[in-house]
Simulated scan of single mutants.
Amino acid sequence: MYHFCMALVQVDAVSKSYPRRAGLRTELRTVVEDVSFDILAGETLGLVGESGSGKTTVARMILGLVEPSSGSILIEGINIAQASRPQMKDLRRQMQPVFQDPYAALNPRMKVFDIITEPWAIHGIEALNTAHRYHNPKTLLRMRASELLREVGLDDSALGRHPHEFSGGQRQRINIARALALRPKLLILDEPVSALDVSVGAQIINLLRSLQHDHGLTYLFISHSMPLVRYLSTRIAVMEHGRLIEIGEAESLCANPREAYTQKLLAATPELPTGVA
C-alpha cells in the first residue's frame, strides 16, 4: 500500500479550444473547459466519461503533445509550458503513454526487439538505469528487453518477431513493456483495454495492477467504463462535455455519486468483466 503525499501532476484551470469554420466566420470550439485536479505520487486517478468528454485531450496536454489554451500543467513542480528543452526531455522520460489501439500503436515493420529498445535509442543507453559498464551495449539491450517482456508475461522468443504475429492482448503487453523501458513514474493509460475482448482486457487490467504494486507507478487511467475505473483507481474524476463535474475517492464516489451523469455512468456498465479480481 502506498502513501500518497506529493502531487506528481497538477492540472490547474486548464482549457483547450480549437478554431473551426462556421459559415464565413471562424469560431472557437471548446473541448476542455476549466479543468483542475492533482495526481498524487503512487496513486491511480481514474478519468472517466463518455466519448467526446475531453478525456484524451487532457491526457495529451499532460504529455505535452497539445498546448493548453489557458491554465497550467505542472509535472513534479515544473510548468511544462515553460520547461527548457532538457527539462522537457527529462519529463518525457518520466511519463509514458499506453494507447487504446494495440494494433495501430506498433510499427508493423519493426521487430519487437527494436520496438522495446527504441526508447533507449532515443534517450541514450544511459536511460537503462543499470550498471551497463559490465556488458557490451548489444548484450545489455537484449538482456533488458527480455526482462521487460517477462515483466508483462511474455518470453524473449517474441524479440525476433513482428507485431502481426501476436494477438491483441499480446500486442498491448508489448506496448506496456515499451512504456516501462525508461522506468517512468507516470503511465497515462488511455482506454488500454477497450479494443480487446473482455477476458483479455481483464488480464491486462490485472497486469497493470501488479506492475503498479511492483514498481510504485502512478497511473492516469482513462476509460468510459466506471467498473474498471473503480477497480483500478484510488480516486475518480468524472468529465462531461469538457468539464470536470465530480471528483472523489473511488469507493465513496461510486457508492454515493453526487451528479446525475455519474449515476448514469454507473448504471450503464454495472458489472466487472470476468477475470478481474
Rank of each mutant, 00 (worst) to 15 (best):
42 G>H: 03
7 A>K: 08
96 Q>T: 09
232 L>S: 02
17 S>I: 02
228 L>N: 10
136 N>G: 14
239 M>F: 07
142 R>M: 14
82 Q>T: 10
192 P>D: 04
240 E>F: 14
121 A>M: 01
277 A>Y: 04
156 D>R: 09
82 Q>A: 15
153 G>A: 12
107 N>A: 13
126 E>H: 14
233 S>Y: 00
232 L>I: 15
226 M>Y: 09
82 Q>I: 01
95 M>K: 08
221 F>V: 02
67 E>I: 05
18 Y>N: 03
221 F>H: 03
224 H>A: 12
233 S>E: 00
272 L>T: 03
56 T>P: 13
202 A>R: 02
112 V>F: 03
148 L>K: 04
161 R>A: 14
209 R>I: 01
74 L>W: 06
263 Q>I: 01
235 R>Q: 14
138 K>L: 10
199 S>E: 12
70 S>T: 05
270 P>E: 10
219 Y>F: 14
140 L>T: 01
270 P>M: 09
143 M>P: 00
115 I>E: 08
110 M>E: 13
133 R>Q: 15
66 V>Q: 14
119 P>K: 05
228 L>Q: 14
234 T>L: 01
107 N>I: 11
57 T>A: 13
23 G>L: 03
154 L>K: 01
204 I>P: 07
147 E>R: 06
176 I>P: 08
1 M>C: 05
248 G>S: 05
229 V>S: 09
116 I>R: 02
155 D>L: 11
63 L>A: 13
223 S>Q: 00
249 E>V: 05
90 D>M: 08
195 A>D: 04
57 T>D: 08
103 Y>N: 11
123 H>R: 02
4 F>W: 01
23 G>N: 01
108 P>Q: 05
132 H>L: 15
177 A>K: 06
44 T>K: 00
167 S>A: 08
234 T>N: 15
229 V>A: 15
27 E>Q: 13
179 A>G: 11
39 I>E: 08
140 L>Q: 11
126 E>L: 10
215 H>I: 02
252 S>T: 13
111 K>Y: 03
195 A>C: 09
134 Y>F: 15
2 Y>A: 12
53 S>I: 04
15 S>R: 00
207 L>K: 04
137 P>G: 10
90 D>T: 08
17 S>A: 15
248 G>F: 03
157 S>E: 11
251 E>R: 01
259 E>C: 08
229 V>Q: 01
271 E>V: 12
22 A>N: 07
